[in-house]
Design a protein around this nucleic acid. Structure first.
Lengths: 151, 151
DNA sequence: CAGGAATTTCGGAAGTCTTACGGAATTAAG
DNA sequence: CTTAATTCCGTAAGACTTCCGAAATTCCTG
């Protein structure tokens, strides 16, 4: 965890909002030379502070209208490895977290329709031998969904 | 929801993995002219298919070591407006979803330590008058966390 | 606190990449 | 089958990024 100065912080804030701003624009906003901005970005990438640059796709624009959180549990610890393998391979799964509490894992899943969700549950999750229970929370609406963190 | 051809789909896949590839590289990979790639990207942005270009920051690299999901509920419907206002304003909250089931809302929250989490719960969530119950699921590890969707 | 090493900043030159444009080609409509 | 509309492409202009050496700053050590 390298230390960041104020220039780095401003830069990170600006780039996580929009990574396509010209160096000249960033230079103007932050108040350091264009070449310095370039150096800083390069360094932030090299040191792993910035892990990538990604276009964000509007899910509804491509027919992914259903967002769900699925909690999964099992009792046989051997289940985990197979479960994770399946989950990692599935493009429907955006996130997979090992969590505290009554459940083993929490998944964030995006699909087109309830039909797709049903198929996902039967063919991907419940098809894993040993999975005992799941609970699905359907998202009715999303008020906030950002990738920007405080820095 | 405009329709996408195969070029659009390939382009979206490539750009959500890495939006900094030169047009010439994308042109090479997909097999259409550089100027066509440019046209397509411009159109995908104009039509809202692509909603933005974002640098992704490695959370642990900047000391955000704690990820939690918090479920919140209340019975007085007047609570919602104030709750959402607070949540939108808080940089700790990455996501806020209205969900089905026993709870009203699900939050995805990223902070530094359990101490920060405690502060968030007391000062941001429980400080909202009318919030009755919360349940916090701490993330022990994250197996998958992507923004890439199938397209 | 001084001296020196290491790092960072900067402006400018060079090179690369994006953008805009018009005509050709393809697709869609009548 | 003809015409209109859209998309595709190569090119040239312009914008942007990258690289460089020198100056400035910071950091370390004695």
């Amino acid at each position: 965890m390298a230390k960041l100065d104020d220039t780095d912080r401003q830069l990170l804030m600006l780039l996580q909002e929009d990574d396509r701003q010209a160096l000249a624009v960033l230079s103007e906003k932050i108040g350091v030379a264009v070449s310095t901005i370039n150096d800083r970005i390069k360094r932030l990438v090299r040191t792993g502070m910035i892990s990538g640059f990604h276009a964000r796709i509007a899910p509804e624009a491509i027919g992914l209208d259903l967002l769900a959180f699925i909690m999964v549990s099992w009792s046989n610890p051997k289940v985990e490895a197979i479960f994770l393998e399946r989950v990692k391979a599935s493009p429907d799964v955006l996130e997979c977290h090992h969590i505290t509490g009554a459940w083993n894992y929490l998944l964030k899943v995006r699909v087109g329709t309830t039909r797709d969700l049903e198929r996902f549950l039967t063919e991907t999750i419940k098809a894993v031998d040993g999975v005992e229970r799941t609970e699905t929370l359907i998202t009715l609406s999303t008020t906030k969904e950002t990738w920007s963190v405080r820095v």
